[in-house]
């Protein structure tokens, strides 16, 4: 475990300069830390870190954080994302199409927003957006606009219907759109470079096409100064070496690939996934 790549995320978005990297604590709130449950969890995470691990992304119920609307935000976000239609049985294995589960997607996006302020008011790109659950989530969290890129026309048809869902009158994520293209081709040409503020993605892990995960990261870093991405924990050492000094493992998550994904023989499998933040040098 390379300690230097992990940092305390316990700063709020009102603090422009984050403290230097020390430990790996993920905070899902930017309110005051009076919630006992969260404190307990933090203690647990600290212990974990001393043993050299990355803490799991906190999933503590946040309802007791005083004075903030944030707890409801996380819950509402998850509820909405549960309504987002995904690949279902049409998932294409060749393209590594498995959706980010609603709960995970909500926690990830909520962390990116509350710890780093990188979604609200930002122009966001979602690479390999699939049916658009991260895109829709970013829009619901107040992104100025979101553009999703995917190679699969069938997934983007579902994306279109999701963006016109009004989530029971809450809000229609109309301010998003999709481009059908191969992210690794030169279609995302230099005109796009540096245009986005933030890239979010759950890229193909590279089990079907070796190295595609890091190709996505490379393209992401051309589009925006910061990229938040999910990667298999088993590839962490490799990634951390390759992007030394330019990445932080923010959290380790359990990713449930559900039974609808045909090639899995068991009903569902849990794989361990890292949320990694990449930055331009």
């Amino acid at each position: 475990m390379e300690e230097a790549t992990i940092s305390i995320l316990a700063f709020t978005k009102h603090q422009p300069n984050p403290p230097p990297p020390q430990l790996g604590i993920v905070l899902l709130t930017c309110g005051k830390l009076t919630n006992k449950k969260i404190l307990e969890e933090l203690e647990l995470n600290k212990k974990l870190l001393k043993q050299g691990g990355v803490p799991p992304l906190s999933t503590a119920p946040l309802a007791a954080v005083p004075g903030g609307s944030l707890p409801n935000l996380l819950r509402d976000l998850e509820c909405c994302l549960e309504e987002v239609e995904t690949f279902g049985t049409r998932a294409k294995i060749r393209l590594e199409q498995y959706p980010t589960p609603a709960h995970l997607a909500a926690c990830v996006l909520h962390t990116i927003e509350t710890s780093f302020g990188d979604i609200s008011g930002r122009l966001v790109a979602d690479l390999g957006c699939g049916c658009g659950n991260l895109t829709v989530g970013a829009s619901l969290l107040g992104a100025a606009s979101v553009v999703g890129f995917d190679i699969d026309p069938d997934a983007l048809q579902v994306f279109e219907s999701n963006r016109h869902n009004d989530f029971d009158g809450l809000r229609c994520p109309d301010d998003v759109e999709a481009v059908l293209c191969d992210v690794t081709s030169s279609v995302i040409s230099s005109r796009w470079h540096g245009v986005f503020d933030t890239v979010i993605m759950n890229p193909p892990f590279g089990t079907k096409k070796k190295g595609i995960d890091l190709e996505f990261v490379k393209v992401g870093l051309q589009l925006a100064p910061v990229v938040y991405s999910l990667h298999k924990t088993s590839t962490r050492n490799h990634i951390v070496k390759k992007f030394e000094g330019r990445c932080q493992v923010l959290a380790q998550l359990r990713f449930n690939i559900d039974h609808s994904y045909k090639f899995h023989t068991r009903d569902s499998v849990d794989i361990s996934v890292d949320l990694i933040k990449f930055c331009k040098k």
């Binding site: 190679i151 026309p153 983007l156 048809q157 994306f159 279109e160 759109e177 999709a178 481009v179 059908l180 293209c181 191969d182 081709s185 030169s186 279609v187």
Partner: peptide
Amino acid sequence: TSGIPNMLLNEDEV
């Protein structure tokens, strides 16, 4: 179509 520009290229175009 349905608001989505199709920027996929055929193999002989790249």
